[in-house]
Design a protein around this nucleic acid. Structure first.
Lengths: 239, 239
DNA sequence: GCTTGTTAAAATGTCAGACATTTAATAGAC
DNA sequence: GTCTATTAAATGTCTGACATTTTAACAAGC
């Protein structure tokens, strides 16, 4: 695959990295393919070799590429991607045609993990955590109706789940909050946003919040599972 | 804190990155401190500015440092560390004086997550996965007795748990296998390695293996919890 | 013919030095 | 005192040359 199909870019190695990463994430190149050479990339996008190298360094740190002196740059397979790298989440966010296999994998992870996290949150949450959860939930409520606040609503949704992970008061789980963004953002494009489904989603989130506030571990686990069941429907994973 | 307390190094930006990372991980610098300047580091270790920049790029990608043009390099706090970055696991492995708070956090994560993973493995494991688990378990058995095979035993232990994560057949959980290494390696230095505790540990691992083989989800969850209870004792987290 | 060693080409990796940009502190004008 | 230039110090970027690694081609020798 060549570079010609990619859009132009403007300014900064980060931009270039995002551009190339998103091309890789949407299957623009096949695993095992040789990636274009540094000099060709630089010539194509009219940037210095430095910028190219900085971008490629990020991509290989994220497990998307494998570079070896003398041989060149190879595209790695999905199983080697560092899905938990925050940079990855940033690159995946806003991608419309994310690989369905990946969306399903992330969802399946959340479905197995998030009930546990909600349970931990119910045990460990402090006042500060509850405030964060309530703020996020209030934001979701306020933006539920209007069509042109969809992005904002998604941000509050992300904030709610992230607050749940943080409330677990575990450094490792907390890191995982990054992973939520692309999964939730995919909802915007995937679901119908009918009023009744939104109301349903809100009600389920409220139950998570209440369970955590009441320090009811098993209720939090159940409620989290219910939220994700709703999510699965909206994502089109189940009907 | 100065660079003088650090051991010398030989060759490669990776070595330098490991050296500095381990210094940061053991609290050589406090969060908020300003890290030495590029030129000073280069002069101290007699390496080019390039090498220093490559090393610092890794460290800031892992969330250990925050660099801003003009201001300098700041040391970030533990909550910002990317604990799930594979590089981090590599750096943490072999550290004797890892921060106890960190060891506890990783253990708490495993205690909440690994039962779920074992349950998923019981659902999804295929022949290939069972072979991996059995090979690892056999290795643990063979190396259980001798004192000079402790490192090898730990490797098989890591391999067993990693195989469990892989057997879940979920891309996200699989990535998390990296996190196990430092946690398990810490056991080598922390525990007494008496014969009876080793036998006990082996028996519990065997139950995980059997449960997965029998596709018994709840038995796998229980068995994984038992393994981790043993681990907690060996780590000195509980008595 | 098969192996082995040599050479050449192509790719990434490294170096060195100049320059750019950003930030913070400092001195000066009003 | 406050605002504004100026300066210093740090990281970021560019450029061109060179180093190293890998692969492939090719020739020499048995």
């Amino acid at each position: 695959m060549t570079l010609d199909a990619l859009p132009p870019h403007q300014g900064g190695a980060e931009q270039l990295a995002r551009l190339l990463a998103q091309a890789l994430l949407t299957g623009h190149w096949q695993p095992g393919d040789t990636f274009p050479r540094e000099l060709d990339i630089g010539k194509h996008f009219a940037v210095s070799r430095n910028q190219v190298r900085n971008a490629l360094t990020s991509l290989s740190a994220a497990g998307l590429l494998e570079r070896t002196a003398g041989r060149g740059t190879l595209v790695r397979e999905m199983g080697d991607w560092h899905l938990l790298d925050p940079l990855m989440s940033e690159w995946m966010t806003g991608l419309v045609n994310l690989d369905p296999q990946l969306v399903r994998a992330i969802y399946a992870f959340r479905f197995s993990a998030e009930p546990v996290v909600a349970g931990l949150a119910a045990q460990a949450a402090e006042a500060e955590d509850l405030e964060r959860l309530e703020r996020a939930f209030a934001g979701m409520e306020n933006t539920a109706g209007s069509v042109d606040a969809r992005d904002e609503h998604a941000e509050y949704d992300v904030a709610f789940h992230d607050a749940t992970y943080r409330a677990s008061h575990n450094l490792v789980w907390r890191q995982m909050g990054h992973l939520l963004r692309p999964s939730i953002m995919a909802l915007i494009h995937g679901s119908q946003h009918r009023t009744d489904t939104l109301d349903d989603s809100l009600a389920r989130h409220r139950q998570v919040l209440d369970a955590i506030r009441n320090r009811d571990v098993s209720a939090a686990e159940t409620a989290a599972r219910e939220v994700l069941r709703r999510t699965a429907i909206d994502l089109g994973i189940v009907s």
